[in-house]
């Protein structure tokens, strides 16, 4: 951020616009200051979240999807967003702000890759979802446990290896056996996957990248609401 910019002298809308730029550039400190400034001016936490953080991450997501930004830039943006979220979250939890939905997400057994999964988790949070990240190298038992405990709307499965992606089917089969599958939206992602694979194993959708995962999550939540 330019040293000469003094956010105390700016209009609310100008700060919102500045937040989008700072999110794009991954400026965590600036985002935290801007969030605090808007809170000090009695803006609703939910408005700061949706207009500033979610609005900004939408732009980041679009440019990521289009190959203009890559993982390092998006991670910096997500870290900046997290900085803002840390301030807003307790306030949001205490308010009656609307919830986008609850997501449980994790990388399957045999796979320690968590870069894509973390990115999806952070961007879903940026889009207003409540995300429970259950980690990597997860057995069927761990997924079932988390689904029963958190009652999510969406379950996200990640795999980055051709040797581990078939395990996604194992998880989905176990959900069916436990009669949990029908109450869940199952989204899958990871570099070696594709649409046909996702359909074959019985997932609801394949998310080619983190931005599309957010789009899918939003789309399915709307369908669920009957909208």
């Amino acid at each position: 951020m330019n040293e000469e910019i003094n956010i105390h002298e700016m209009e609310n809308d100008e700060i919102i616009e500045l937040m989008k730029e700072d999110l794009y550039d991954g400026y965590r400190e600036e985002i935290m200051k801007e969030v605090q400034e808007l809170l000090d001016r009695d803006l609703e936490p939910y408005d700061i979240l949706t207009r500033g953080l979610v609005g900004g991450m939408d732009i980041v997501g679009d440019d990521f999807r289009d190959g203009i930004l890559f993982v390092p830039e998006v991670l910096m943006s997500a870290k900046a967003m997290k900085g803002g979220m840390n301030i807003l979250q307790p306030l949001l939890a205490a308010s009656d702000a609307p919830q986008q939905g609850v997501v449980v997400i994790g990388t399957v057994k045999g796979d320690i890759h968590d870069i894509g999964k973390n990115l999806v988790a952070m961007m879903l949070e940026g889009a207003g979802f409540t995300v429970i990240d259950i980690g990597i190298n997860l057995s069927v038992g761990k997924y079932l446990e988390a689904v029963e405990k958190h009652q999510p709307d969406i379950l996200g499965l990640s795999a980055l290896l051709t040797t581990t992606m078939p395990y996604m089917r194992t998880v989905i089969e176990a959900l069916k056996e436990k009669k949990l599958r029908d109450d869940l939206i199952v989204l899958v992602g990871g570099a070696p996957l594709n649409e046909a694979f996702a359909m074959e194993i019985g997932a609801d959708a394949y998310c080619r990248n983190a931005a599309l995962a957010v789009d899918m999550a939003k789309k399915f939540m709307k369908i669920e609401d009957g909208a």
């Binding site: 051709t162 992606m165 078939p166 089917r169 070696p192 996957l193 594709n194 046909a196 694979f197 074959e200 194993i201």
Partner: peptide, 10 residues
């Protein structure tokens, strides 16, 4: 080529 699932394996 591209991965496909046949009979449960990739």
């Amino acid at each position: 080529g591209i991965p496909e699932v046949v009979d449960g394996s990739v």
